[in-house]
C-alpha cells in the first residue's frame, strides 16, 4: 500500500520564472524510509509543503493513505518536522508539547504520559521544565521532533531535521527515527543534503534537481548503477552540483 502518491504535480512561484516543481511523480510505500535528496533550491521543501497542504500546487494530484491530501482527517495521521524550530522559546519543552498535544485532541492524562515517554527517549527529561530559549540547537531539534510525533502519526515527514545539529543530538534523532520505523511501522519521508546520513538511513531515495525527480531507487542500486562508492558521488554525477 502506498503511504503517499504524487502524480504530475507542478508548482511555480510568482517571484521566479523557473518552476519550483516540474511534473513530479513519485510514490512512497507504507512503512518505508524514503529520502528526498537535492541541492539547495532543488524543490525539496516545496514538495514537502505540497504534501502537507501548506501550499497549493498548480496542477497534479496528491493522495495520502489513499485519501486526498486536503482531507482534514489526514492531519491526525501525518506529522511534519519543519526545518524551522516551530516552537515557543519562552515555554518549556513540556508546555510546548502540552499545547501541541491539545491541538491534536489527545486526552490530558494520555498526553502527559506520552510527553514524559518522548522526553525520556530523546534525553530531555532533566530539562523538561527549562525554557527552550536556553537550549542548544540540537536540543531544540529534539523537541521539534517530539512535537510532531505526539499522536504516533502513520507518516512522518522531516525537512532537514539534522541541520546544524551536534553529533550527539544527531545520533539520538536518527536512532529514534529508525526505532519508530521498525517498531511502530511509521513511514518516514526525509529531506536532506547530507548524503552520508541518507545513505545510512534511507531504504529508498529520490534525487530532485531543478524541481524535477532525476532518479529514484535504493542507495545500493544507485551506487551499483552509477558504479560509485557512495551516494554523494551519485548525487554529484546526477546533479553536477555541490551538496
Amino acid at each position: 500500500m502506498n503511504a503517499i502518491s504524487i502524480e504530475h504535480i507542478s508548482k511555480s512561484y510568482p517571484s521566479s520564472d523557473e518552476k519550483a516543481l516540474d511534473d513530479v511523480t513519485l510514490t512512497i510505500k507504507k512503512g518505508s524510509i524514503v529520502g528526498i535528496l537535492g541541492p539547495n533550491g532543488a524543490g525539496k521543501t516545496t514538495l514537502i509543503s505540497s504534501i502537507v497542504h501548506l501550499i497549493k500546487f498548480d496542477s497534479g494530484n496528491i493522495t495520502v493513505l489513499n485519501q486526498p491530501h486536503t482531507n482534514p482527517a489526514i492531519k491526525y495521521k501525518l506529522g511534519l518536522v519543519p526545518q524551522e524550530y516551530a516552537l515557543y522559546f519562552e515555554l518549556t519543552p513540556f508546555e510546548n508539547l502540552v499545547y501541541f498535544g491539545r491541538m491534536l485532541n489527545i486526552p490530558k492524562r494520555e498526553l502527559v504520559k506520552k510527553i514524559d515517554e518522548l522526553l525520556e527517549v530523546l534525553g530531555l527529561t532533566a530539562v523538561k521544565n527549562n525554557r527552550l530559549k536556553t537550549f542548544s540547537g540540537g536540543m531544540k531539534r529534539r523537541v521539534n521532533l517530539a512535537a510532531s510525533i505526539l499522536n504516533n502519526p502513520e507518516i512522518l515527514i522531516l525537512d532537514e531535521p539534522t541541520v546544524g545539529v551536534d553529533v550527539q543530538s544527531r545520533a539520538v534523532i536518527m536512532n529514534y527515527l529508525k526505532q519508530l520505523n521498525e517498531v511502530e511501522g511509521m513511514t518516514i519521508v526525509y529531506t536532506s543534503h547530507l548524503m552520508a546520513e541518507a545513505q545510512d538511513f534511507c531504504r529508498f531515495v529520490y534525487i530532485i534537481d531543478n524541481g524535477k525527480i532525476v532518479v529514484g531507487d535504493s542507495p545500493k542500486n544507485l551506487m551499483n548503477t552509477y558504479e560509485v562508492k557512495n551516494l554523494e558521488e551519485v548525487f554529484l554525477k546526477l546533479t553536477g552540483k555541490n551538496k
Binding site: L54, G79, L80, P82, Q83, E84, Y85, L87, Y88
Partner: peptide, 13 residues
C-alpha cells in the same frame, strides 16, 4: 518567523 503558525496549520485546528 519561528514557524509555529506553520506547525499549527499542519495540525487539526
Amino acid at each position: 518567523q519561528q514557524g509555529s503558525f506553520m506547525r499549527l496549520r499542519t495540525l487539526p485546528v
